[in-house]
Amino acid sequence: MLFDSPSLSSSQQVKSITWENCDSGKLPGTIKSLSISPDPVSIPGEVIVSVVLNTEVPLSSPLQIKITAEKELFGDWLTAPCIDKFGSCTYTEVCDLLDAFFKPGQQCPGPLQTYGLPCHCPFRAGSYSLPTTSFKIPSFSLPSWLAEGNYRVTGILSHKNQEIGCAKFTFSLAEPSSWWW
């Protein structure tokens, strides 16, 4: 007998990732290119990323990112609330978040250091390129109401209430099928 048993699987897959600049690239901060593979990306697992970002203005504190996360439910898009800094949240000081992840005074980790990419504010105006690089994604759990479905995530970067950049991402989350004979 065949049956699908996603409850036995502790992994997830991110499928069909697409992206676009919200403003057709008219703001001073843009994603010039972004490639993510494989499709689907398994969590836990390995993801291969290459990205080129551009900013026509220097970026310094205070930098804010407003994330709006939406999940499709019965053909409608519902905004996910901000719970424990996850979901539709506003992060009022990105520079402080970076300092929490990458301690000030220490070298930037791995690929950032290799390609001369900064990991602390301020960021000078210019182009930032991360060539094809592999990252390991650790296992983590999502609330069951977020575990599967179609999503839209919009991120707006602002400096002193001036919008610098905006990007939209769409993807699907699913648990891989486990088949038992």
Results as ranks from 00 to 15, higher is better:
Leu63Ser: 00
Pro138Tyr: 04
Arg124Asp: 15
Ser139Asn: 13
Trp19Tyr: 12
Thr133Tyr: 07
Glu46Ala: 13
Asp84Met: 10
Cys121Ser: 04
Cys95Pro: 07
Val49Arg: 01
Cys119Gly: 05
Glu56Arg: 06
Leu27Ser: 08
Thr18Phe: 09
Ala100Tyr: 12
Thr18His: 08
Lys103Glu: 15
Ser139Val: 12
Leu59Tyr: 07
Ser35Thr: 13
Leu63Gly: 02
Gly105Met: 05
Gly25Met: 02
Ile83Gln: 10
Thr18Ala: 10
Glu72Asp: 11
Val47Tyr: 09
Glu46Val: 13
Ala69Trp: 07
Pro111Arg: 08
Trp19Val: 03
Gln106Trp: 08
Leu130Ala: 04
Pro28Tyr: 00
Leu130His: 00
Thr30Cys: 05
Ser141His: 11
Thr114Ser: 06
Leu98Gln: 01
Asn54Tyr: 13
Cys22Trp: 00
Leu73Ala: 12
Leu97Asp: 14
Ser24Leu: 11
Pro118Ala: 08
Asp76Leu: 14
Lys103Arg: 12
Pro122Gly: 02
Asn54Ile: 08
Thr114Met: 10
Leu53Phe: 11
Thr90Gln: 04
Asn21Ala: 01
Pro131Arg: 00
Gly29Pro: 02
Ser37Ile: 12
Ser61Met: 04
Cys22Ala: 00
Ser60Trp: 05
Pro58His: 03
Leu73Pro: 08
Gln13Ile: 10
Glu56Phe: 13
Leu97Gly: 15
Ser141Asn: 10
Thr90Val: 09
Cys22Gln: 01
Phe102Tyr: 11
Gln106Cys: 10
Ile67Trp: 13
Pro38Lys: 00
Pro143Lys: 00
Asp96Ala: 15
Ser50Gln: 04
Lys85Met: 14
Glu93Gly: 08
Ser144Lys: 05
Gly110Cys: 02
Ser144Gly: 03
Gly29Thr: 09
Phe102Gly: 04
Asp96Pro: 03
Asp23Ala: 06
Lys26Val: 11
Val94Cys: 02
Asp96Met: 09
Pro62Glu: 02
Thr90Asp: 10
Thr68Ala: 07
Ser42Cys: 13
Phe123Ser: 04
Cys89Pro: 04
Cys119Ile: 01
Leu53Glu: 03
Pro111Trp: 09
Ser127Asp: 06
Gly110Arg: 01
Ser127Phe: 09
Ser42Glu: 14
Thr68Pro: 05
Lys71Phe: 05
Lys103Met: 10
Gly25Ile: 04
Asp39Asn: 14
Leu97Tyr: 15
Gly116Cys: 03
Leu117Cys: 07
Ser139Asp: 13
Leu63His: 00
Phe102Trp: 06
Thr132Ala: 12
Lys136Gln: 11
Tyr128Gly: 03
Ile65Asn: 04
Pro111Leu: 07
Gly126Tyr: 02
Thr90Phe: 05
Gly45Pro: 02
Thr30Tyr: 08
His120Asn: 09
Asp39His: 00
Trp19Lys: 01
Gly75Thr: 01
Ser24Ile: 05
Phe74Glu: 15
Lys32Tyr: 09
Ala125Met: 02
Lys15Trp: 09
